[in-house]
Design a protein around this nucleic acid. Structure first.
Lengths: 200, 200, 200, 200
DNA sequence: GCGTAACCGAGACGGTACGTCCGGTCTTAGT
DNA sequence: ACTAAGACCGGACGTACCGTCTCGGTTACGC
């Protein structure tokens, strides 16, 4: 039957691919991105170099796919933003779970490496922005939009900027490592973002 | 004069060093950090490879020094934060000049490359945080502190977090390139930071 | 046919190897052994350095193989020693053809270089002695042995020493270049060796 | 007195020179000629590199001088050939003492290295032939000449070739290391050289 | 007995080559 | 048909020395 034909191939393809992605994640974690080599990945995955070159154009691309898979695994249940009507609580909840992902051991190293590549390489950078960052950002935008519509946010606020005021500091601490990334921190962020620095 | 007796060595050393740093900046700009090679820098600078290895342990270190020099050149006049009594104006002024540096052509490529390396390499990352980021951040902290003391900022605010709410979004736009980095943007940032999202 | 199935690999390997050996011989001849570099050989042979290092551990080893090939080419027809019954004529014949090889243009430079390395490096030296020198020496030994058995050589003579008395002076002139290496010379050598210096 | 004038300088010069030559001999012995480096000699001798380059053009030249000094030290008493009237005894005596020098521990390594360089480098080779080999050879020639004049050697013999028939095999064994270099060996050499291989 | 010039050690410098590693392409053998 | 294996050319790595070049510091000379 023709429908039977493909499966065996597809199955083993999937196995090979995930062996490569797993090896990539392990090696990024063990030796860091700069010392990550295609040959090393091939050896670790028990695969010929050509098999890797057949499917990915560069080690950045492998890492991208690896991190995408990893992100899907970690946040399997979706990263929907709650809309309980309590804007403050909802924002704190989503930022807290974002923090949980960021400090997930084994997620940190590959994600940082990927971020680093994206920063230096505009092409990959845009791809990451569009496929990894933008979706989550849009969810936040919608939640803020609904809040603005019911008057919980001043009508003249640019919600895009509002989202960035929450996401930016989070990313900053993660990237710079100059202060701990905790639930308390995101709570404080949300408080200040909502009510401002100036005394009321 | 005794100042003449900075022998020939010191003079030529300085010349050599700046030739290396200049070549590094040019090449980062031309081919990007990953294709930046020590051999290329040596050739461009008209210098032996060993001379580079004698003074820097890695291409990241060269780039760090090059960017430090560059930053000093660009912001030669000091990056003092004004204290006119008008907190909003002062913050907008300092953020606008920060933006001006960030979008300075010829500063962007090396700085991004350096940031990328710092993100992936904790050691260099801390060094960058301490030597390039922290000083500016401290100036802002002090400005906010003085504002807090005279009641322009609520007394229960953590000024460290307040600074990050301004610097974080800025850095985010610079790194992600997902929206333009303009004076209007920083003005909006300061407005929201001061008065919050919620309607007053 | 199965002979067609000496795959592509073996064929191209042979080609690559002989390109390397040829380049080595050319370069030794052009610039001399001390200025012979692996990089130079690789460039001349149109080959990556690694391909050389994969098959030879040092430039001395390459040269050894190159000279071995060269010797085989030059003395393709075998270096059998004639046994006409006329000892004197036979010895002169073999020494003359040895001289012919030694003064062969294009053989001199590599062979000298190889000899020089062998003199300084006991390991290679023994290898050369065993693989290049000893075989020829043994042929001579056998010829002298047969002569001794039929009484053309005194029975108390150590034929090993006898051979060395012919080969030694030859090698000496070749190495020292302090006098011409001619057929007349080897004739005189054989005469003296057979009948001695003392008047009869 | 003018002969007193210079001394201090000359003395220290001599000290420096011999420190360099000693260091050279030690290092040739320890690491071999190819790994002998000017920097290594300078460091071992406690001397600046420039001081070496001031007096010698190449490491071969240093080694030459070092070996010349060494030879002078070892054979301080001169290498006169005895002329007792007994040609056989005289030849055996001079060859025996030559062997003694050759197998002198600490002489072997530098001398071999020098010989190796001389073989590959015609310029140095001739220099060695003229300054180290020829003098001794001439002494032998004269001894053989006097023997020939009194009829101990056949009048039609070319004494030059005769000398080479003694020196050549000696050098051969030393260079090839394929058989021991002993007093018995040189005795046998002299016997054969004098009376020939053929039975009388 | 005091400059002053020759000489020294030290070692930075522009280079060349080393031997290694890896990138990306290609061929082969095997399943 | 697709893979694991791995040879191949190319090119950068970081190191070791080359031979040249200051640089201070020290003699020992000649005024």
């Amino acid at each position: 039957m023709s429908s039977r034909r493909v499966p065996e191939t597809a199955r083993s393809r999937r196995r090979t691919h995930s062996a490569i992605l797993d090896a990539t994640l392990e090696l990024v974690h063990e030796v860091g991105y700069p010392k990550l080599t295609i040959e090393g990945v091939a050896a670790r995955a028990g695969v010929g170099k050509q098999t890797i070159y057949r499917w990915w154009p560069s080690k950045a691309a492998i890492l991208r796919d690896a991190v995408v898979c990893l992100t899907e695994d970690i946040a399997r249940t979706g990263i929907a933003i709650p809309d309980t009507g309590d804007l403050e609580a909802d924002l704190k909840a989503v930022l807290r779970s974002t923090v949980d992902i960021m400090i997930h051991p084994g997620y940190d190293a590959p994600a940082r490496a990927l971020a680093a590549v994206g920063i230096a390489d505009p092409e990959l950078g845009e791809e990451l922005a569009v496929h990894l960052v933008e979706p989550t950002l849009h969810l936040c935008l919608e939640r803020l939009g609904s809040a603005q519509r019911i008057g919980q946010i001043a009508p003249d606020i640019d919600t895009r900027i509002a989202v960035e005021m929450l996401a930016g500091p989070l990313a900053r601490r993660w990237l710079l490592r100059d202060a701990p990334l905790t639930h308390e921190y995101v709570d404080a962020l949300v408080d200040i973002a909502l009510h401002g620095l100036a005394p009321r």
